[in-house]
Nucleic acid binder design. Sequence first.
DNA 1: TTATTATATCTGCATTTCTAGATATGTCAA
DNA 2: TTGACATATCTAGAAATGCAGATATAATAA
Lengths: 99, 99
Amino acid sequence: MIFKALSNETRVQILEWLKKPDANFGPQLYLPPDSDFKGGICVGSIQEKTGLAQSVVSNYLLLMKKAGLLESRRYGQWTYYRRNDETFMQLADFIKNEM
Amino acid sequence: MIFKALSNETRVQILEWLKKPDANFGPQLYLPPDSDFKGGICVGSIQEKTGLAQSVVSNYLLLMKKAGLLESRRYGQWTYYRRNDETFMQLADFIKNEM
DNA sequence: TTATTATATCTGCATTTCTAGATATGTCAA
DNA sequence: TTGACATATCTAGAAATGCAGATATAATAA
């Protein structure tokens, strides 16, 4: 559930960081330069910034992906996550018009 | 936290019911006719409709009030709750512009 | 005053979620 | 192939939440 996914402070923090990936994370050296997945950040970079265990962060990211808040793409051994801004817009509209 | 308050199905259902209080609840016989708290529904009416224990519903309502989703007013031995629509608008704007 | 009613708070147990360590899977390099 | 690395999944204990019964508080009625 989307509100469940947003009910954890660290998860919201990750979403915030991913609004400005270049400013908040180091360069993603293994993301192919010709990729159309710009703004994607690998699990390891996010894990490092949170200071939490790798399994925790991996779970957080998967949870937010299931909720539609993130999308992911794998390149080689790296999985890159980035925001799915469409979902945020839809959520805002839903709250404004349906709730 | 507001997302925490919204992460429970029953609580969201109550908010939904309170969008159309007249249609979803019986007449509030003890709410003074000259009150400016129109649309307010007493805890007992809400409790009855959910089928949950009185203590549970009372807690839910207090939780949503703390989150700003509901406002309340007491008349005699009855506490009436209604939606705080301003908060919903602000939340939608926050998600659209800040998240 | 006492009794009744509505709501809030307290208590405890069951369930869920959080968190992290350990392990498994998948990919790349040698 | 083997070894190293990134990520996902599994497992288990800790913490938070859900829920309801019991009790407390506050207002009303007799």
